[in-house]
């Protein structure tokens, strides 16, 4: 039944609604008995089948040739005016082009998080490779170790094998590094506006320490093999490198006005005529018939 149809169903007699019926419960009970009979007794299934047939016939007769209805008496009274406990609305002073906004008014754009993540990923990669060269004599050592986080072949490498190039490990490590860096960069973009004081201290120093500490305490239990191969000092240094660079890049980007109440298509730059009322202070849509 369409909305228009339903809307017209409120008449002097009341509102028309579907009539209650026992046939759905009959049909469901019959189906359950049909199934139960498979593991109890065939007679149970026969009874279930009979009930199902009865349920189907009854249901059809409920809706064919015409659907059965009841008329619910309804007094259409004047609608109670909507009331609010907070009639006063705090309005922020904004530029004219931003006629309305909700907190938070400004935010870092998504691109800030992406830039921060990419910059951080470069810083971290440089530090990790430096560790490989200085401490292990091979740039592939940290790369193979990173891939061992999810790629099960890499976890089986011995120390010497970790220092050689493996294409699969390299590809997996690149994917992990890039995705993780982008996600953490986006996280910084989302979090830093909520940390008005010393964002670099929190994002660049404290968060990496907490994260590294958590991993340090857990990895020995979870994956002792991997735990033995990680140099934790260099690990923490590379986390600092990421955090500080990503935090700096993000915090130097210009903030933008949040556009929460603007349709997604408009925010994406797609021209959609009629997607938004292009007027402020106009008459209500009921008055001018624009729906």
């Amino acid at each position: 039944m369409s909305n228009e149809h339903r809307a017209s169903n409120a008449d002097r007699n009341g509102i028309v609604m579907p009539q209650p019926t026992a046939w759905p419960i009959t049909l469901a009970f019959g189906f359950m008995l049909l199934m139960a009979g498979l593991v109890t007794n065939a007679a149970v299934s026969v009874l279930g089948a009979i009930l199902m047939v009865a349920g189907c016939v009854g249901w059809f007769r409920d809706v064919l040739p015409h659907e059965k209805h009841v008329v619910i008496p309804c007094e259409i009274v004047e609608a109670v005016p909507a009331q609010t406990q907070r009639a006063q609305v705090k309005v922020f002073d904004l530029a004219p082009e931003h006629a309305r906004a909700f907190l938070p008014i400004t935010y870092y754009p998504i691109s800030a998080g992406i830039k921060g993540g990419l910059a951080g990923s470069v810083a971290m990669a440089v530090l990790a490779v430096a560790y490989g060269v200085i401490k292990q004599g091979s740039i592939w050592y940290p790369i193979n170790l990173l891939s061992a986080a999810i790629y099960s072949q890499s976890i089986q490498f011995g120390t010497e094998s970790l220092k050689t190039f493996h294409l699969n490990s390299f590809l997996v490590a690149c994917v992990i590094h890039l995705i993780t860096s982008l996600l953490v960069g986006l996280l910084y973009g989302a979090m830093l506006p909520m940390i008005p004081r010393r964002p670099i201290l929190l994002g660049g120093i404290i968060a990496p320490i907490l994260w590294s500490g958590l991993l340090y305490t857990a990895l020995g239990i979870i994956n002792p093999l991997l735990d033995k191969k990680i140099d934790w000092l260099w690990f923490v240094i590379s986390q600092f490198g990421f955090g500080i660079v990503a935090g700096l890049v993000v915090s130097r980007q210009d903030k933008v006005f949040t556009q929460q109440n603007i349709p997604f298509a408009l925010r994406a730059g797609i021209e959609v005529p009629g997607a938004m009322r292009e007027r402020i202070g106009g008459s209500s849509p009921d008055e001018d018939g624009r729906r």
Partner: peptide, 26 residues
Amino acid sequence: ATIPTVHSSRPLWDLKHPEDPDWKYE
């Protein structure tokens, strides 16, 4: 009793705040 007609995602806000309804901005 009567099927409502809405103009924004917060129809009751519009009714409670006719001076500042959401439908102007959506």
